[in-house]
Amino acid sequence: MKSITKQKPFDEVKQQLDRFDRVCIVGCGTCATMTKTGGREEVLNMKEHLQELGKLVTGWTVIPTACDEMTEGALNLIQGIQNANCILVMACALGVHKVNLYIDKPVIPALDTLFIGVEDSPGYFHEVCAQCGQCVLGETAGICPLTACHKGLLNGPCGGTNNGKCEVDKEKDCAWTLIYQRLKEQGRLDLMHKYHPPKNYQVVPRPRVIKLV
């Protein structure tokens, strides 16, 4: 599982940093490094860009896993963090959340968190699960209709499906054609005839908090 992120347009970062002149940058050594959005190289690049803007970069680091418990300790070790008047986080929103928890200074995200996904081939990522709380993969040949179908349909393809592609994008596969093909190969096509009632969108109502055992 990886948190897939994209760098925000630099203008947006710039605008968010408008009122701060001393910045400390925090990257992440896990997902954001793999997506090349918040690893060492990207953090150093950002540092340069901010300096060109006339900002003082008081310190920087790449935390091994920003969403982890260890983040608190790692933040304390950054030289110059006290001197900053804001923290620019180049990690996914989970990392931003952690940093925000441990530090009293304003925290600014430099990345947009897109989805939880996997890497198919270098540089290509796709979403596999939207954490809906009621998994149907057992009946859909392991392909998630909520995530892979543009409309999140539960009872089969819409009329927009076209030679195995989705109506929103000729480059994207129609999830329901994939589900159909796979179920057929597995001799389980009867599952496609099964009626799925309206989905429960409140399995864990937002804000999602749960105590397990």
Partner: peptide
């Protein structure tokens, strides 16, 4: 009907609902 996808239309940033699908609507 299920309805066309949002991105094919003229309010491309809108939220598509699809709380029900066409089969579920018929049953409703």
């Amino acid at each position: 009907l299920t309805g066309d996808a949002i991105p094919v239309g003229d309010h491309k940033e809108a939220k598509g609902v699809f709380d029900l699908d066409s089969v579920q609507l018929l049953r409703a």
